[in-house]
Design a protein around this nucleic acid. Structure first.
Lengths: 343, 343
DNA sequence: CTGTTAGCGCCTTCAC
DNA sequence: GTGAAGGCGCTAACAG
């Protein structure tokens, strides 16, 4: 950072005041600079290889161009898809995106959020926070309050447990719709690979699924609802357990797609063919999964659009109407071909 | 950003000077603060809800805690896996990661790089830049030079075309090893879905593959080498073309895994069963692909470790030994079961 | 060990 | 339209 070219250098080289150079290079509301001066300044800037110092600018202007995005794991396709939407929308506005992964660790999430506060991020997006204990919630709330006090905006995706603006996802409705669709395909005996307990997203999907089944007069045996990690390995483990105790279901619903992938692997290891031997459905609509064999039935969420909406919600702040919950589309594919005896 | 509590406020509340407060809260090399004062300062900070302003800190200290990562598309599992490694290593050092996607657009890449310069990022990692024309290279070089001049470090992953420290990947060797392995499985007629022309990574993989075949006395018909996009859709399109002209190969090599996924989809649409009807191999070792059916033979790269290495290389700067190129492991799975007549 | 003093680079009143 | 001056919040000297 030594020997940096500063605005003062440029101004001197162009024979104008720093103020004029600033106005010429970075603009100033309502003010203009004479064309010839502007040209001279621009030339000097290029000549000297000048580049604004964003920190100095942030100091002086009192506002930044950084937005933060907090996810569980950027390597999870769900998070990556959302991130791509956030980043695209941010790029359009000249905003820079800082991403942090919590690795499902509440302390880490807090650390990242604090860092974003220190950066005076203009907005931060919480994509799928999953800690519901009172202690972490309180700690998070205090930081989000500080961010808000500093003029930053906060938005959440999915479930809001912090009282912030949220891009809501109709997990309940999507799961219910999926359940009734599966019933109409002739399935009657279900098992659910649920996520961890007390995770709102999972709870909603499970509740919605149950509701959908009930609408078709189908019951869900509590024995067939397994709580597990919200990951590929979680799905694998839970499916193995189900198989070990002798699978008593003709259709398995994994509350998200990556869990379904794990379940698929477990089924295959056990010699089951997904589709013909047992049906399988997921939730999220991760892009890659349309290409697996058999293609997975799922509730497809417009993930990049959700990310984009979250960014827009965050930068818009309190103004604007509350957005409608995002609904997913039930996509029936070969992993749930339907029961043969049903037309 | 108004009504922010500043260090001066904390100092006043604690009855000490700003300097002492600064030393107590944020430390200073070699200096210590008397315990009781430190306690008072800490208490005041909590009381007032103080949070350092990272921009002011960056200004005063002349250095930042931001590192930038530039990828093509964060939704690509390859980039996401690298990013997770970069972020993990960064978190350990208290560094914040800013990610930008170029969407394979040279102008966008330049824009992002400039933004990182303005932020005075301590390091920036270029993961798979793919523009080789003289104009973009020159523009990029001038910005990287400016970043270096500002004390920032640059590191690249894969091919280095900018003269920066690079985590090299042995694409040639990996592809050669894959080719000879496939030959030993009995395959003799190959097709390659190559990426775009002049993309160093692709060129290396193609050349290595050819070399490996040559070592087994097998020839690669130029007709069977298709240039295409480096994406899932690229693989799909190229595979369709190959099929339309009547597939004249018993084994197809896609130069990366996402292309292989697209190829698999095209094959399936045409009624081919991957593995038994035609063999298929990829490159990268993207995690999800171990779970697809049939599991994909590939050259597995330790993507998160590569990301981690790139970060370490970048923050280490010019010191330290040049790291050895990363070698991939050939992983043979069911997509290349081998030719029946061969034991 | 603590306090005082100068900036870091930029923007923005306020005069001109 | 331009310029001069003050300050954003923090830390690194320098005294004490």
């Amino acid at each position: 950072m030594t020997g940096q070219v500063t605005l003062a250098d440029v101004a001197r080289a162009a024979g104008v005041s720093p103020a004029t150079a600033s106005r010429a290079l970075n603009g100033s509301p309502g003010r203009t600079v004479r064309a010839d001066l502007a040209v001279r300044v621009a030339a000097a800037a290029v000549e000297l290889g000048y580049s604004v110092n964003a920190h100095a600018q942030a100091m002086a202007r009192g506002t930044t161009t950084t937005v933060g995005l907090i996810v569980h794991d950027i390597a999870d396709p769900y998070a990556a898809a959302i991130a791509s939407g956030v980043m695209a929308a941010a790029a359009e506005r000249g905003l820079i995106v800082t991403i942090a992964s919590t690795a499902s660790d509440a302390a880490l999430e807090l650390t990242h959020l604090r860092a974003l506060l220190q950066q005076r991020a203009r907005a931060v997006i919480l994509a799928g926070s999953r800690f519901t204990d009172a202690e972490s919630t309180a700690a998070m709330s205090s930081v989000t309050a500080a961010i808000a006090a500093a003029g930053g905006r906060i938005a959440a995706i999915g479930a809001d447990r912090l009282g912030v603006r949220t891009v809501e996802i109709d997990n309940f409705g999507g799961a219910a719709h999926l359940a009734s669709t599966l019933c109409s395909l002739g399935y009657r005996h279900f098992a659910v690979l649920a996520g961890p307990e007390h995770l709102v997203t999972c709870d909603d999907r499970l509740a919605g699924f149950r509701e959908g089944l009930a609408g078709a007069g189908v019951d869900l045996d509590p024995e067939n609802v397994l709580t597990t990690q919200f990951t590929r390995d979680g799905g694998y483990v839970a499916m193995r357990e189900l198989l070990d105790r002798g699978l008593a279901a003709d259709c398995v619903f994994a509350v998200n797609d990556v869990m379904a992938v794990g379940a698929m692997a477990a089924l295959r290891e056990h010699g089951y063919r997904v589709g013909s031997d047992v049906a399988l459905a997921g939730f999220d609509g991760i892009p890659t999964l349309r290409d697996i064999e058999p293609p997975l039935t799922t509730v497809r969420l417009p993930l990049p659009e959700i990310g984009r909406a979250a960014l827009e919600l965050a930068v818009a702040g309190e103004t604007g109407p509350r957005p409608a919950p995002v609904r997913g589309d039930v996509v029936v594919r070969a992993s749930t071909p339907g029961v043969a005896s049903v037309p």
